[in-house]
Amino acid sequence: MAASETVICIGCPLGCRVVVSLDKKGNVTRIKGAQCKQGERYVLKELREPVRTLTTTVRTMDDAYPLLPVRTTRPVLKTLMADIMRETVGVRVKPPVRCGKVIIADVAGSGADLAATTDWKG
């Protein structure tokens, strides 16, 4: 059965609600509601492969500085966010840490690393 999906474009303050019609095989048959070509491109990418940069914290061994902020080194599939959060459970980091240091490589098989976003001399 044919279906349609609605995606809100985040490219500009307009926030177009774009309706994408799909045929049985999931091919795009129609795209409606975007006010610009860039928006259409964003919406098609968001539909096919929605990605986000995930930022969170990991535990340290230091009560005075209990958390180290981290990020994925590039945007990851948004469906992987819960898996990444689970992988950070139980991680304990020790100083010194330099901004950019990899805390978990290829986190949750996302292809991105989870890396420190600050320096921590300890």
């Binding site: 930022t55 969170t56 902020p69 976003t117």
Partner: peptide, 17 residues
Amino acid sequence: IHNGFGLLYFGEDMTGP
């Protein structure tokens, strides 16, 4: 700790820290 900082100033998607 979230990203979205520096997109205009540095042309880079940075976190607050």
